[in-house]
Design a protein around this nucleic acid. Structure first.
Lengths: 193, 193
DNA sequence: TCGTTTATTGTCTATCTTGACAATCTATAA
DNA sequence: TTATAGATTGTCAAGATAGACAATAAACGA
């Protein structure tokens, strides 16, 4: 008898819009009004399908953690057989690394974590996992390298990538992208021989 | 006849509070109410001494640009005669690098720059100036190094520093601080010989 | 067709935020 | 002392925001 539910579609539609707003305005600036407009839905539908503000943030966090882990795994899985580390750097600092939203979202979440212990824990884990993923590629590419060296190089590459992506609101900055990529390549080079 | 003006003191007091709120809540989350409470002043005094929201942001930006340029110059000026680059890295990644507020403010300003062209220009310049300051120290320490190499190393060190400081809301993260410092040292090492 | 379940819309209230202005208080110099 | 410029406080209106709920519309199965 019931009408078929489209709650799941609506939910992802709303979370997409919320994610865009968080990336653009920050967690505090992502008002329900803006989210509703971005989603092309009436505001009460947000409440109906997801819940209140806290529910939105919880849902976004959960979805973001899963999706960014998945996309990183896919990225690593798509790496070729040889020159894996070099290719990873090429991809990370490529001109069209996704649409820049991913890192903007993580930045907004990190910034908002100051007053939200749960968020802080989650983003701490997220950061460590991201670096660890890079470290794995580095370790495979340079099997003889020491553990500490691998970790330092991975952290450096991750920092360069995150830093460049954080600047997206400032516009292209292709020079910074180029020099940051060069820095990553230099770091990788320190593990050779 | 007039009563002596304390507008300047009040102004810095208010901008201090605004800066703290921007670091903690982001530009959108730094409401006048929070600023007033943080400053320990009545809200109308903000208007009386600085102006409306936009005036606040303009004033903060101007002050921030000047003060961060000055503090960077002082940092460089305070470097010892030898081991300048190594010391700079020690200081940048030291445990108590100021109070973490500086980079949080710049992050908030960068995030808010998406919809404010003037802000975007200013923060683009700020970023380039920061890297250039580091590049100068690097170039002095490694006079034989190529320009491109110097720029890459400087960008890498800057990225590592900014990245670590951005994580301040997540708590200490001393491991990340250590590995990031090691990455910076590695990068510096690529210019030797 | 009809009833049930869900989607969608409309509306209301409480609170927050901002901007603005009037009124009062206070220090300082004439 | 007194006039004056400025500091401080109080208050209000307009708009934005969030939360909640009732009412309506639409789909689906019996």
């Amino acid at each position: 008898m019931p009408r078929r539910s489209i709650k799941e579609e609506r939910r992802t539609q709303i979370l997409d819009a919320f994610e865009i707003c968080v990336a653009r305005y920050g967690v505090e600036g992502a008002t329900l009004e803006r989210v509703a407009e971005e989603a092309g839905l009436a505001r009460p539908l947000i409440r109906h399908n997801v819940g209140n503000r806290d529910d939105l943030l919880d849902a976004l966090l959960e979805r973001y953690l899963e999706s960014s882990e998945r996309s990183m795994q896919e990225l690593v899985a798509a790496l070729p057989q040889d020159k894996r580390l070099e290719t990873l750097i090429d991809w990370l600092f490529g001109p069209a690394m996704v649409d820049h939203r991913e890192v903007l979202v993580s930045n907004a979440l990190i910034a908002a974590a100051a007053e939200r212990p749960k968020l802080a824990r989650a983003m701490r884990d997220w950061t460590r996992a991201f670096i660890a993923d890079i470290a794995r590629v580095v370790a495979e590419a340079r099997p003889e390298a020491e553990q500490d060296a691998v970790e330092a190089v991975a952290a450096g590459i991750a920092a360069a990538y995150l830093s460049v992506e954080s600047m997206a609101p400032l516009g292209p900055m292709t020079d910074l992208r180029r020099t940051s990529k060069a820095a990553a390549q230099r770091l990788a080079g320190t593990l050779e021989g």
